[in-house]
Design a protein around this nucleic acid. Structure first.
Lengths: 226, 226
DNA sequence: CAGAAGTTTAGAACGTGTTCAAGCATTTGC
DNA sequence: GCAAATGCTTGAACACGTTCTAAACTTCTG
Protein backbone atom coordinates (compact mmCIF):
# COMPACT_ATOMS: atom_id res chain seq x y z
CA UNK A 1 0.00 0.00 0.00
CA UNK A 2 1.30 3.42 -0.85
CA UNK A 3 1.56 5.97 1.84
CA UNK A 4 -0.34 8.96 0.54
CA UNK A 5 1.28 12.35 0.74
CA UNK A 6 -1.58 13.75 2.79
CA UNK A 7 -1.17 16.99 4.66
CA UNK A 8 2.59 16.67 5.05
CA UNK A 9 2.22 16.34 8.78
CA UNK A 10 4.99 13.77 9.10
CA UNK A 11 8.47 14.60 7.84
CA UNK A 12 8.25 12.22 4.84
CA UNK A 13 11.20 9.92 4.33
CA UNK A 14 13.65 10.59 1.57
CA UNK A 15 12.18 7.86 -0.55
CA UNK A 16 8.65 9.16 -0.20
CA UNK A 17 9.81 12.67 -0.90
CA UNK A 18 11.31 11.49 -4.16
CA UNK A 19 8.08 9.79 -5.08
CA UNK A 20 6.08 12.86 -4.22
CA UNK A 21 8.34 14.95 -6.38
CA UNK A 22 7.99 12.56 -9.29
CA UNK A 23 4.24 12.58 -8.82
CA UNK A 24 4.28 16.35 -8.95
CA UNK A 25 6.37 16.31 -12.11
CA UNK A 26 3.96 13.93 -13.79
CA UNK A 27 0.87 15.91 -12.86
CA UNK A 28 2.53 19.09 -14.04
CA UNK A 29 3.54 17.46 -17.30
CA UNK A 30 0.00 16.20 -17.83
CA UNK A 31 -1.40 19.67 -17.24
CA UNK A 32 1.08 21.23 -19.64
CA UNK A 33 0.45 18.65 -22.31
CA UNK A 34 -3.29 19.14 -22.12
CA UNK A 35 -2.84 22.87 -22.33
CA UNK A 36 -0.52 22.69 -25.30
CA UNK A 37 -1.79 19.86 -27.41
CA UNK A 38 -5.22 18.90 -26.13
CA UNK A 39 -6.25 15.37 -25.56
CA UNK A 40 -4.31 14.09 -28.54
CA UNK A 41 -0.93 14.89 -27.04
CA UNK A 42 -1.70 13.25 -23.75
CA UNK A 43 -0.23 9.84 -24.40
CA UNK A 44 1.51 7.94 -21.68
CA UNK A 45 4.70 7.81 -23.69
CA UNK A 46 4.62 11.53 -24.31
CA UNK A 47 3.71 12.21 -20.72
CA UNK A 48 6.60 10.15 -19.42
CA UNK A 49 9.02 11.84 -21.78
CA UNK A 50 7.78 15.27 -20.80
CA UNK A 51 8.06 14.51 -17.12
CA UNK A 52 11.53 13.11 -17.65
CA UNK A 53 10.67 9.67 -16.32
CA UNK A 54 10.35 6.25 -17.76
CA UNK A 55 7.10 4.95 -19.16
CA UNK A 56 6.66 2.56 -16.27
CA UNK A 57 6.96 5.21 -13.58
CA UNK A 58 3.56 6.83 -14.01
CA UNK A 59 2.08 3.37 -13.70
CA UNK A 60 4.01 2.71 -10.55
CA UNK A 61 2.95 5.98 -8.99
CA UNK A 62 -0.61 6.32 -10.22
CA UNK A 63 -1.65 3.00 -11.66
CA UNK A 64 -3.39 4.20 -14.80
CA UNK A 65 -3.83 7.10 -17.12
CA UNK A 66 -7.26 7.81 -15.72
CA UNK A 67 -5.86 8.06 -12.22
CA UNK A 68 -3.45 10.69 -13.47
CA UNK A 69 -6.26 12.67 -15.04
CA UNK A 70 -8.24 12.47 -11.83
CA UNK A 71 -5.17 13.68 -9.98
CA UNK A 72 -4.90 16.65 -12.32
CA UNK A 73 -8.58 17.38 -11.78
CA UNK A 74 -8.26 17.30 -8.02
CA UNK A 75 -5.00 19.18 -7.95
CA UNK A 76 -6.37 22.01 -9.98
CA UNK A 77 -9.51 22.79 -8.12
CA UNK A 78 -9.84 25.84 -5.97
CA UNK A 79 -13.55 25.47 -5.49
CA UNK A 80 -13.34 25.97 -1.79
CA UNK A 81 -11.87 29.42 -2.00
CA UNK A 82 -14.44 30.64 -4.44
CA UNK A 83 -17.27 29.08 -2.54
CA UNK A 84 -16.18 30.74 0.65
CA UNK A 85 -17.04 34.12 -0.83
CA UNK A 86 -20.72 33.24 -0.71
CA UNK A 87 -22.33 35.55 1.80
CA UNK A 88 -25.89 36.05 0.61
CA UNK A 89 -28.67 36.33 3.13
CA UNK A 90 -31.23 34.25 1.31
CA UNK A 91 -30.36 30.54 1.46
CA UNK A 92 -31.87 29.90 -1.95
CA UNK A 93 -29.85 32.74 -3.34
CA UNK A 94 -26.75 31.03 -2.04
CA UNK A 95 -27.64 27.75 -3.67
CA UNK A 96 -27.98 29.33 -7.07
CA UNK A 97 -24.88 31.40 -6.60
CA UNK A 98 -22.96 28.26 -5.74
CA UNK A 99 -24.35 26.60 -8.83
CA UNK A 100 -23.13 29.49 -10.92
CA UNK A 101 -19.70 29.35 -9.39
CA UNK A 102 -19.39 25.65 -10.06
CA UNK A 103 -20.35 26.11 -13.67
CA UNK A 104 -18.24 29.18 -14.22
CA UNK A 105 -15.31 27.31 -12.85
CA UNK A 106 -15.40 24.87 -15.70
CA UNK A 107 -16.59 27.28 -18.34
CA UNK A 108 -13.79 29.63 -17.44
CA UNK A 109 -11.29 27.26 -19.00
CA UNK A 110 -13.36 25.22 -21.40
CA UNK A 111 -10.75 23.57 -23.56
CA UNK A 112 -8.82 22.41 -20.55
CA UNK A 113 -11.76 20.91 -18.74
CA UNK A 114 -13.31 19.49 -21.86
CA UNK A 115 -10.11 17.63 -22.53
CA UNK A 116 -9.86 16.50 -18.97
CA UNK A 117 -13.37 15.15 -18.81
CA UNK A 118 -13.12 13.61 -22.21
CA UNK A 119 -10.11 11.70 -21.00
CA UNK A 120 -12.21 10.44 -18.13
CA UNK A 121 -15.19 9.36 -20.13
CA UNK A 122 -14.21 8.25 -23.51
CA UNK A 123 -17.61 9.05 -24.95
CA UNK A 124 -17.49 11.66 -27.59
CA UNK A 125 -19.50 11.39 -30.77
CA UNK A 126 -23.19 12.03 -30.63
CA UNK A 127 -23.99 9.15 -28.38
CA UNK A 128 -26.85 10.90 -26.71
CA UNK A 129 -28.81 11.53 -29.84
CA UNK A 130 -28.40 7.97 -30.96
CA UNK A 131 -29.39 6.33 -27.74
CA UNK A 132 -32.52 8.34 -27.21
CA UNK A 133 -33.92 7.75 -30.62
CA UNK A 134 -36.44 10.07 -32.24
CA UNK A 135 -39.44 7.81 -31.88
CA UNK A 136 -38.92 7.48 -28.19
CA UNK A 137 -38.48 11.21 -27.93
CA UNK A 138 -41.71 11.83 -29.76
CA UNK A 139 -43.49 9.45 -27.48
CA UNK A 140 -42.33 11.26 -24.38
CA UNK A 141 -43.12 14.62 -25.84
CA UNK A 142 -46.60 13.36 -26.50
CA UNK A 143 -46.99 12.27 -22.91
CA UNK A 144 -45.95 15.67 -21.62
CA UNK A 145 -48.14 17.55 -24.05
CA UNK A 146 -51.04 15.44 -22.96
CA UNK A 147 -50.34 16.32 -19.36
CA UNK A 148 -50.12 19.96 -20.33
CA UNK A 149 -53.44 19.80 -22.16
CA UNK A 150 -55.04 18.16 -19.18
CA UNK A 151 -53.93 21.16 -17.15
CA UNK A 152 -51.47 19.20 -15.03
CA UNK A 153 -48.57 21.41 -16.04
CA UNK A 154 -48.66 25.10 -15.33
CA UNK A 155 -49.47 27.01 -18.52
CA UNK A 156 -46.34 29.12 -18.35
CA UNK A 157 -44.01 26.11 -18.25
CA UNK A 158 -42.60 24.97 -21.57
CA UNK A 159 -43.23 21.23 -21.93
CA UNK A 160 -40.27 20.77 -24.24
CA UNK A 161 -37.83 22.25 -21.76
CA UNK A 162 -39.46 20.30 -19.00
CA UNK A 163 -38.92 17.11 -20.95
CA UNK A 164 -35.26 17.97 -21.37
CA UNK A 165 -34.87 18.16 -17.64
CA UNK A 166 -36.58 14.84 -17.09
CA UNK A 167 -34.30 13.20 -19.59
CA UNK A 168 -31.20 14.75 -18.11
CA UNK A 169 -32.13 13.31 -14.79
CA UNK A 170 -32.95 9.87 -16.09
CA UNK A 171 -29.70 9.67 -17.93
CA UNK A 172 -27.69 10.41 -14.83
CA UNK A 173 -29.56 7.82 -12.82
CA UNK A 174 -29.08 5.24 -15.54
CA UNK A 175 -25.43 6.05 -15.72
CA UNK A 176 -25.05 5.51 -12.00
CA UNK A 177 -26.73 2.19 -12.32
CA UNK A 178 -24.50 1.14 -15.18
CA UNK A 179 -21.43 2.10 -13.25
CA UNK A 180 -22.68 0.29 -10.19
CA UNK A 181 -23.08 3.43 -8.16
CA UNK A 182 -26.76 2.83 -7.57
CA UNK A 183 -28.33 -0.56 -6.96
CA UNK A 184 -31.09 -1.97 -9.08
CA UNK A 185 -33.43 -1.64 -6.12
CA UNK A 186 -32.76 2.08 -5.81
CA UNK A 187 -32.84 2.80 -9.50
CA UNK A 188 -36.57 3.09 -10.02
CA UNK A 189 -37.32 4.99 -6.79
CA UNK A 190 -34.51 7.45 -7.48
CA UNK A 191 -35.79 8.14 -10.95
CA UNK A 192 -39.36 8.44 -9.75
CA UNK A 193 -38.31 10.77 -7.00
CA UNK A 194 -36.61 13.05 -9.47
CA UNK A 195 -39.45 12.94 -11.93
CA UNK A 196 -41.98 13.67 -9.24
CA UNK A 197 -39.96 16.58 -7.90
CA UNK A 198 -39.47 18.15 -11.29
CA UNK A 199 -43.07 17.63 -12.31
CA UNK A 200 -44.23 18.98 -8.97
CA UNK A 201 -42.19 22.07 -9.64
CA UNK A 202 -43.91 22.45 -12.97
CA UNK A 203 -47.37 21.43 -11.84
CA UNK A 204 -50.43 23.62 -11.75
CA UNK A 205 -51.89 24.08 -8.25
CA UNK A 206 -54.67 21.56 -8.58
CA UNK A 207 -52.24 18.77 -9.54
CA UNK A 208 -49.82 19.38 -6.78
CA UNK A 209 -51.51 17.04 -4.37
CA UNK A 210 -51.02 13.78 -6.24
CA UNK A 211 -47.50 14.74 -7.27
CA UNK A 212 -46.51 15.59 -3.75
CA UNK A 213 -47.84 12.19 -2.76
CA UNK A 214 -45.57 10.61 -5.35
CA UNK A 215 -42.60 12.53 -4.06
CA UNK A 216 -43.21 11.30 -0.54
CA UNK A 217 -43.88 7.79 -1.72
CA UNK A 218 -40.61 7.58 -3.63
CA UNK A 219 -38.80 9.17 -0.72
CA UNK A 220 -40.15 6.60 1.69
CA UNK A 221 -39.09 3.85 -0.67
CA UNK A 222 -35.59 5.26 -0.93
CA UNK A 223 -35.24 5.46 2.82
CA UNK A 224 -36.50 1.94 3.17
CA UNK A 225 -34.19 0.46 0.53
CA UNK A 226 -31.38 2.60 1.94
CA UNK B 1 -22.70 8.15 -48.84
CA UNK B 2 -24.07 4.83 -47.81
CA UNK B 3 -27.56 4.00 -48.81
CA UNK B 4 -29.28 3.00 -45.62
CA UNK B 5 -31.26 -0.19 -45.56
CA UNK B 6 -34.39 1.61 -44.50
CA UNK B 7 -37.77 -0.07 -44.70
CA UNK B 8 -36.78 -2.32 -47.58
CA UNK B 9 -39.19 -0.56 -49.86
CA UNK B 10 -36.87 -0.75 -52.86
CA UNK B 11 -35.57 -4.09 -54.09
CA UNK B 12 -32.03 -3.55 -52.75
CA UNK B 13 -29.21 -4.29 -55.17
CA UNK B 14 -27.00 -7.28 -54.75
CA UNK B 15 -24.27 -5.22 -53.15
CA UNK B 16 -26.59 -3.58 -50.68
CA UNK B 17 -28.16 -6.89 -49.84
CA UNK B 18 -24.76 -8.27 -49.03
CA UNK B 19 -23.96 -5.29 -46.87
CA UNK B 20 -27.21 -5.54 -45.02
CA UNK B 21 -26.58 -9.20 -44.40
CA UNK B 22 -23.09 -8.51 -43.10
CA UNK B 23 -24.43 -5.79 -40.89
CA UNK B 24 -26.93 -8.21 -39.49
CA UNK B 25 -24.23 -10.79 -38.91
CA UNK B 26 -22.05 -8.32 -37.07
CA UNK B 27 -24.80 -7.07 -34.81
CA UNK B 28 -25.81 -10.62 -34.06
CA UNK B 29 -22.22 -11.57 -33.29
CA UNK B 30 -21.85 -8.58 -31.00
CA UNK B 31 -24.99 -9.52 -29.12
CA UNK B 32 -23.85 -13.11 -28.76
CA UNK B 33 -20.39 -12.14 -27.60
CA UNK B 34 -21.75 -9.81 -24.96
CA UNK B 35 -24.12 -12.50 -23.77
CA UNK B 36 -21.43 -15.14 -23.58
CA UNK B 37 -18.33 -13.35 -22.43
CA UNK B 38 -19.34 -9.90 -21.22
CA UNK B 39 -17.45 -6.83 -22.18
CA UNK B 40 -14.10 -8.58 -22.16
CA UNK B 41 -14.92 -10.78 -25.11
CA UNK B 42 -16.20 -7.92 -27.22
CA UNK B 43 -13.04 -7.10 -29.11
CA UNK B 44 -13.17 -6.05 -32.72
CA UNK B 45 -11.01 -8.97 -33.76
CA UNK B 46 -13.16 -11.44 -31.90
CA UNK B 47 -16.27 -9.81 -33.24
CA UNK B 48 -15.04 -9.98 -36.81
CA UNK B 49 -14.02 -13.60 -36.43
CA UNK B 50 -17.36 -14.50 -34.90
CA UNK B 51 -19.24 -12.75 -37.67
CA UNK B 52 -17.06 -14.46 -40.26
CA UNK B 53 -15.79 -11.18 -41.66
CA UNK B 54 -12.50 -9.40 -41.87
CA UNK B 55 -11.43 -6.97 -39.20
CA UNK B 56 -11.91 -3.95 -41.40
CA UNK B 57 -15.44 -4.82 -42.44
CA UNK B 58 -17.13 -3.69 -39.22
CA UNK B 59 -15.33 -0.39 -39.63
CA UNK B 60 -16.52 0.00 -43.19
CA UNK B 61 -20.09 -0.82 -42.29
CA UNK B 62 -20.37 0.94 -38.95
CA UNK B 63 -17.35 3.17 -38.57
CA UNK B 64 -16.37 2.37 -35.00
CA UNK B 65 -16.89 -0.03 -32.18
CA UNK B 66 -19.15 2.39 -30.44
CA UNK B 67 -21.36 2.65 -33.48
CA UNK B 68 -21.76 -1.11 -33.41
CA UNK B 69 -22.74 -1.02 -29.77
CA UNK B 70 -25.25 1.71 -30.52
CA UNK B 71 -26.60 -0.43 -33.33
CA UNK B 72 -27.03 -3.34 -30.96
CA UNK B 73 -28.76 -1.05 -28.53
CA UNK B 74 -31.17 0.23 -31.13
CA UNK B 75 -31.72 -3.12 -32.72
CA UNK B 76 -32.66 -4.71 -29.47
CA UNK B 77 -35.18 -2.27 -28.26
CA UNK B 78 -38.82 -3.02 -28.35
CA UNK B 79 -39.77 0.00 -26.35
CA UNK B 80 -42.50 0.99 -28.70
CA UNK B 81 -44.46 -2.17 -28.21
CA UNK B 82 -44.29 -1.97 -24.47
CA UNK B 83 -45.10 1.69 -24.44
CA UNK B 84 -48.12 1.14 -26.59
CA UNK B 85 -49.75 -0.78 -23.78
CA UNK B 86 -50.03 2.42 -21.76
CA UNK B 87 -53.71 3.19 -21.46
CA UNK B 88 -54.10 4.97 -18.14
CA UNK B 89 -56.60 7.76 -17.86
CA UNK B 90 -54.47 10.12 -15.80
CA UNK B 91 -51.72 11.71 -17.89
CA UNK B 92 -49.36 11.85 -14.93
CA UNK B 93 -50.00 8.22 -14.29
CA UNK B 94 -48.93 7.49 -17.82
CA UNK B 95 -45.70 9.41 -17.43
CA UNK B 96 -44.66 7.44 -14.40
CA UNK B 97 -45.75 4.18 -15.96
CA UNK B 98 -43.60 4.97 -18.98
CA UNK B 99 -40.70 5.76 -16.71
CA UNK B 100 -41.11 2.40 -15.02
CA UNK B 101 -41.23 0.61 -18.33
CA UNK B 102 -38.07 2.30 -19.52
CA UNK B 103 -36.23 1.33 -16.38
CA UNK B 104 -37.57 -2.19 -16.23
CA UNK B 105 -36.46 -2.66 -19.76
CA UNK B 106 -32.85 -2.23 -18.77
CA UNK B 107 -33.11 -3.82 -15.37
CA UNK B 108 -34.72 -6.85 -16.93
CA UNK B 109 -31.42 -7.83 -18.48
CA UNK B 110 -28.85 -6.10 -16.33
CA UNK B 111 -25.62 -7.79 -17.34
CA UNK B 112 -26.38 -7.30 -20.99
CA UNK B 113 -27.18 -3.62 -20.73
CA UNK B 114 -24.47 -2.91 -18.24
CA UNK B 115 -21.95 -4.29 -20.67
CA UNK B 116 -23.49 -2.41 -23.53
CA UNK B 117 -23.42 0.92 -21.77
CA UNK B 118 -19.99 0.32 -20.37
CA UNK B 119 -18.77 -0.15 -23.90
CA UNK B 120 -20.30 3.21 -24.74
CA UNK B 121 -18.76 5.12 -21.89
CA UNK B 122 -15.45 3.73 -20.98
CA UNK B 123 -15.69 5.09 -17.47
CA UNK B 124 -15.77 2.41 -14.90
CA UNK B 125 -13.81 2.67 -11.69
CA UNK B 126 -15.16 4.97 -9.05
CA UNK B 127 -14.77 8.09 -11.09
CA UNK B 128 -17.83 9.74 -9.67
CA UNK B 129 -16.72 9.59 -6.09
CA UNK B 130 -13.35 11.03 -6.96
CA UNK B 131 -14.59 13.92 -8.99
CA UNK B 132 -17.18 15.11 -6.56
CA UNK B 133 -14.90 15.23 -3.61
CA UNK B 134 -16.16 15.04 -0.04
CA UNK B 135 -15.47 18.64 0.88
CA UNK B 136 -17.54 19.87 -1.96
CA UNK B 137 -20.29 17.49 -1.01
CA UNK B 138 -20.28 18.74 2.55
CA UNK B 139 -20.50 22.28 1.34
CA UNK B 140 -23.56 21.60 -0.74
CA UNK B 141 -25.21 19.63 2.03
CA UNK B 142 -24.67 22.61 4.27
CA UNK B 143 -26.35 24.90 1.79
CA UNK B 144 -29.39 22.68 1.57
CA UNK B 145 -29.65 22.20 5.31
CA UNK B 146 -29.53 25.93 5.71
CA UNK B 147 -32.36 26.29 3.24
CA UNK B 148 -34.29 23.64 5.12
CA UNK B 149 -33.75 25.39 8.43
CA UNK B 150 -34.92 28.64 6.93
CA UNK B 151 -38.14 26.88 6.02
CA UNK B 152 -37.56 27.09 2.30
CA UNK B 153 -37.81 23.34 1.88
CA UNK B 154 -40.96 21.54 2.90
CA UNK B 155 -40.40 19.78 6.22
CA UNK B 156 -41.33 16.37 4.85
CA UNK B 157 -38.69 16.50 2.12
CA UNK B 158 -35.35 14.88 2.90
CA UNK B 159 -32.57 17.38 2.12
CA UNK B 160 -30.04 14.63 1.49
CA UNK B 161 -32.19 12.98 -1.14
CA UNK B 162 -32.96 16.35 -2.61
CA UNK B 163 -29.28 17.07 -2.92
CA UNK B 164 -28.77 13.79 -4.73
CA UNK B 165 -31.28 14.85 -7.32
CA UNK B 166 -29.65 18.21 -7.83
CA UNK B 167 -26.29 16.58 -8.34
CA UNK B 168 -27.67 14.02 -10.74
CA UNK B 169 -29.04 16.82 -12.82
CA UNK B 170 -25.92 18.92 -12.75
CA UNK B 171 -23.79 15.98 -13.77
CA UNK B 172 -25.91 15.31 -16.83
CA UNK B 173 -25.80 18.93 -17.88
CA UNK B 174 -22.06 19.08 -17.41
CA UNK B 175 -21.65 15.91 -19.37
CA UNK B 176 -23.63 17.37 -22.25
CA UNK B 177 -21.44 20.40 -22.19
CA UNK B 178 -18.27 18.33 -22.21
CA UNK B 179 -19.54 16.30 -25.10
CA UNK B 180 -20.54 19.44 -26.96
CA UNK B 181 -24.22 18.65 -26.84
CA UNK B 182 -25.03 21.86 -25.02
CA UNK B 183 -23.38 25.19 -25.68
CA UNK B 184 -21.62 27.19 -23.02
CA UNK B 185 -24.36 29.79 -23.30
CA UNK B 186 -27.05 27.26 -22.51
CA UNK B 187 -25.17 25.49 -19.79
CA UNK B 188 -25.90 27.78 -16.89
CA UNK B 189 -29.56 28.44 -17.77
CA UNK B 190 -30.21 24.74 -18.23
CA UNK B 191 -28.71 23.92 -14.87
CA UNK B 192 -30.55 26.75 -13.18
CA UNK B 193 -33.78 25.70 -14.76
CA UNK B 194 -33.40 22.19 -13.42
CA UNK B 195 -32.35 23.35 -9.99
CA UNK B 196 -35.24 25.77 -9.80
CA UNK B 197 -37.74 23.14 -10.88
CA UNK B 198 -36.51 20.55 -8.41
CA UNK B 199 -36.30 23.05 -5.58
CA UNK B 200 -39.73 24.38 -6.46
CA UNK B 201 -41.04 20.85 -6.20
CA UNK B 202 -39.52 20.58 -2.76
CA UNK B 203 -40.35 24.10 -1.61
CA UNK B 204 -42.66 25.03 1.18
CA UNK B 205 -45.66 27.13 0.05
CA UNK B 206 -44.28 30.47 1.15
CA UNK B 207 -41.08 30.00 -0.88
CA UNK B 208 -42.79 28.96 -4.05
CA UNK B 209 -43.08 32.48 -5.39
CA UNK B 210 -39.40 33.31 -5.79
CA UNK B 211 -38.59 29.84 -7.04
CA UNK B 212 -41.30 29.98 -9.64
CA UNK B 213 -39.82 33.29 -10.72
CA UNK B 214 -36.45 31.61 -11.13
CA UNK B 215 -38.00 28.85 -13.19
CA UNK B 216 -39.58 31.36 -15.53
CA UNK B 217 -36.44 33.45 -15.68
CA UNK B 218 -34.28 30.49 -16.68
CA UNK B 219 -36.92 29.39 -19.12
CA UNK B 220 -36.98 32.78 -20.79
CA UNK B 221 -33.21 32.71 -21.02
CA UNK B 222 -33.24 29.30 -22.61
CA UNK B 223 -35.78 30.35 -25.19
CA UNK B 224 -33.79 33.45 -25.94
CA UNK B 225 -30.46 31.66 -26.32
CA UNK B 226 -32.26 29.06 -28.40
C1' DC C 1 30.62 0.69 5.40
C1' DA C 2 28.20 -3.60 3.43
C1' DG C 3 24.24 -5.91 2.59
C1' DA C 4 19.15 -5.75 2.10
C1' DA C 5 15.10 -3.74 0.42
C1' DG C 6 12.70 -1.00 -2.68
C1' DT C 7 12.19 1.91 -7.23
C1' DT C 8 13.29 3.44 -11.54
C1' DT C 9 14.77 2.31 -15.92
C1' DA C 10 15.05 0.57 -20.60
C1' DG C 11 13.24 -2.50 -23.51
C1' DA C 12 10.19 -5.63 -25.36
C1' DA C 13 5.78 -7.44 -25.63
C1' DC C 14 0.60 -8.03 -25.47
C1' DG C 15 -3.95 -6.77 -26.85
C1' DT C 16 -6.59 -3.04 -28.06
C1' DG C 17 -9.20 0.32 -31.62
C1' DT C 18 -8.35 2.09 -35.92
C1' DT C 19 -6.38 3.01 -40.65
C1' DC C 20 -4.25 2.08 -45.22
C1' DA C 21 -2.44 0.31 -49.71
C1' DA C 22 -3.50 -3.39 -52.58
C1' DG C 23 -6.51 -6.80 -54.52
C1' DC C 24 -11.01 -8.45 -55.78
C1' DA C 25 -16.01 -8.49 -56.64
C1' DT C 26 -19.85 -6.10 -58.23
C1' DT C 27 -21.90 -2.62 -60.91
C1' DT C 28 -22.17 0.40 -64.77
C1' DG C 29 -21.70 2.17 -69.62
C1' DC C 30 -21.43 0.74 -74.14
C1' DG D 1 -21.48 -9.48 -73.46
C1' DC D 2 -17.43 -7.09 -72.36
C1' DA D 3 -14.40 -3.61 -70.37
C1' DA D 4 -13.89 0.22 -67.32
C1' DA D 5 -15.17 2.15 -63.02
C1' DT D 6 -16.58 1.79 -58.46
C1' DG D 7 -16.21 0.46 -53.92
C1' DC D 8 -15.81 -3.30 -50.65
C1' DT D 9 -12.69 -6.73 -48.34
C1' DT D 10 -8.38 -7.95 -46.86
C1' DG D 11 -4.03 -8.49 -44.28
C1' DA D 12 -0.55 -5.69 -42.61
C1' DA D 13 0.56 -1.95 -39.94
C1' DC D 14 0.24 2.06 -36.49
C1' DA D 15 -0.35 4.17 -31.98
C1' DC D 16 -2.20 3.48 -27.89
C1' DG D 17 -2.61 1.80 -22.67
C1' DT D 18 -0.73 -1.51 -20.00
C1' DT D 19 2.32 -5.21 -18.15
C1' DC D 20 6.53 -7.63 -17.66
C1' DT D 21 11.64 -8.72 -17.13
C1' DA D 22 16.11 -7.83 -15.88
C1' DA D 23 19.40 -4.67 -14.72
C1' DA D 24 20.94 -0.32 -12.53
C1' DC D 25 20.22 2.74 -9.04
C1' DT D 26 18.88 4.75 -4.49
C1' DT D 27 17.60 4.44 0.16
C1' DC D 28 17.27 2.09 4.52
C1' DT D 29 19.14 -1.22 8.07
C1' DG D 30 22.64 -3.14 11.02
Amino acid sequence: MNRVAGMASEPLSRREAGKAERRRLIIQAARDLIRETGNAGLSMRGLAARAGVSLATPYNLFGSKRAIVVAVLQDVRQFQERFSTLQGADPLEKIFAALDIAIEFYIGDPSFYRTLWSALFDAYDGVRGEILNPKRDAFWRGLLLEAARAGAIAPDVDPALLLTQLELLLRSVMFDWVVGEVSAARLAPTARYGYALILLGAASPEWRGPLKARVLEAQALLRQVG
